[in-house]
Amino acid sequence: MNAQRDARTLTRSLWRVAAYGLLILMALIFLIPVYMVVVTSLKEAAEAGREATAWDLPSKLNFESFETVWNDLSPNLRNSFLLVTAATAISALVGSMNGYVLAKWRVPGASIFFPLMLFGMFIPYQAILIPLFKFMDNVNLYGGLPGLVLVHVVYGIPITTLIFRNFYVDIPNELLEAGAIDGAGFFGIYTKLVFPLSLPGFVVVVIWQFTQIWNEFLFAVTLVKDRWQPITVPLAETAGGISVDWNQPMAGAILAALPTLLVYIIMGRWFIRGLLAGSIKG
């Protein structure tokens, strides 16, 4: 009996060693691109372009790529920050209000328009691109950031509404009814009772929208003129070129990735919550 148990503990600990080994191996594989992007961005142009030595460490540290890229792309970074700040703030507020209405007020027709709303977040945006482009042109919103903000707010309505709705559903109705007895109306209940409880919902939605809008490409490449382009557009163009010094696209990739990456590393838990909210209980 004891021998059997020993055997079992032994296999179990062997298995745990194997599991750690596999995990570390997988982690290393996942980090390969990180190694590559950092190493290449720190090389000089000529050295960075040499494919045969791609894996070698830079022969001497060189930050010129970051300098160049910063000079070239800082207007685009600024565009991205402006776009993301405005669009995220507006769509979080809109989503919060919609979520409150859908979770706590029995609005007629909600069972029909809610799914219709949600469908909007799955459509391929190519399917609305041409009319959208014409529309933006007609109302003089084509070319600049305000138009892009509007587009991101509108197409962000489904997901922000969904996240807030699922969040508010968990607030007990009794609490709100108590507020109503005290004489609070629609707005009173929202500002005094619901909004103060909303911080976690706002964190999830803000992180989600921030990441989505920062990373977005299709609208960015079709709806604005050159000088207002967000960072993803020039980045995609440099890498698409045939002969490039690869230290620059790599440095650009780091610059473009840092904001969302930082958010993810600092607030990972909330980031994951947004991810799961987008899929389960659609």
């Binding site: 494919e51 045969a52 993803t232 993810y264």
Partner: peptide, 24 residues
């Protein structure tokens, strides 16, 4: 394992473009 999710497809594409060079 999850951090690539926070990146833009454009960033991912740029990096992998370089990782998939035929002679490197």
């Amino acid at each position: 394992f999850l951090f690539p999710m926070s990146l833009s497809f454009v960033v991912t594409g740029t990096i992998w473009n370089w990782l998939l060079k035929p002679k490197g």
